[in-house]
Design a binder for these strands. Structure first.
Lengths: 147, 147
DNA sequence: CCTGAAATCATTGGCGG
DNA sequence: CCGCCAATGATTTCAGG
């Protein structure tokens, strides 16, 4: 992990669809060299994937929420399995503290949200917050200089 | 927004770096047709970008947290500006309820986390939860059939 | 890591539904 | 308006150094 890798990661985080040729021009390496480095970063698990970012509000899902779920159930993995099978769930983190899970969801209408919360309540207490805005949308972690 | 667009979004969400030629094969359209559709999805704001997903724990940032910040400050936008300029912040949502902000951060060590929390405390009360696991990592919203 | 050649791909213009 | 085909220029990929 040197300055070339850091530049590569920054560029691919900014736009994952640029060509190796363009990437090569930006970091001052040849195209085969950057392709090789990218392959190694993928294999090392540094790059875990390339995702098109889709605006839920433009595909009929104007309401996004964070739901804190205080899991009461002992079969934790069963709850997680249920959450995985819930299409409204966009993201889910297992966290310390009483809550246990923080779930990000996107729904079309309030009744849908109500139904979703009702469904989640069988697993524990819920605390729902509507996302008003995303002042910082997913961005790159600040990379260390030393590795 | 028809079944072709939905297939395109699904494919680009699964792997944003596939070629138009490959995308065309998957959705059974020609390369120019998919390129045109992708351009329109971008212009319509449906696709907001393409991001390489980087594992913070593989770049020297093993600790990820969610910090709920109950903003006391009246100059909300100033707080947000400060948060934008904080490199440890990966994501930030403005939410309903007393908290106001939910911030996702990645840090290298516990002292760094402590310093970060101390910094955020000048803007209001904080409640920090460490992310243990991501049972559902950012995935595509379930698309509506009708548009 | 670079260069160079061959295969693949992106992009444009023109044509037909 | 939307998609297909064909051609040109760029890109990817692999070999060899």
């Amino acid at each position: 992990m040197d300055r070339f890798d850091r530049k590569i990661l920054a560029a691919l985080h900014e736009n994952a669809r640029i060509s190796f040729a363009e990437l090569a021009r930006r970091v001052n390496l040849s195209a085969p060299a950057v392709a090789d480095r990218v392959a190694k970063l993928e294999q090392a698990g540094v790059i875990t994937g390339y995702r098109a970012q889709i605006d839920p509000s433009r595909v009929g899902l104007p309401i996004s929420c964070l739901i804190e779920l205080t899991v009461k159930h002992l079969e934790y993995y069963l709850v997680i399995e249920q959450i995985r099978n819930t299409p409204e769930v966009i993201e889910c983190a297992s966290i310390t503290g009483t809550s246990g899970l923080m779930i990000k969801v996107a729904v079309d209408t309030m009744p849908s949200l109500q139904a979703l919360i009702a469904r989640l309540m069988q697993f524990g207490d819920t605390k729902t917050s509507i996302i008003i805005d995303m002042p910082v949308s997913p961005r790159m972690p600040a990379l260390q200089q030393d590795e």
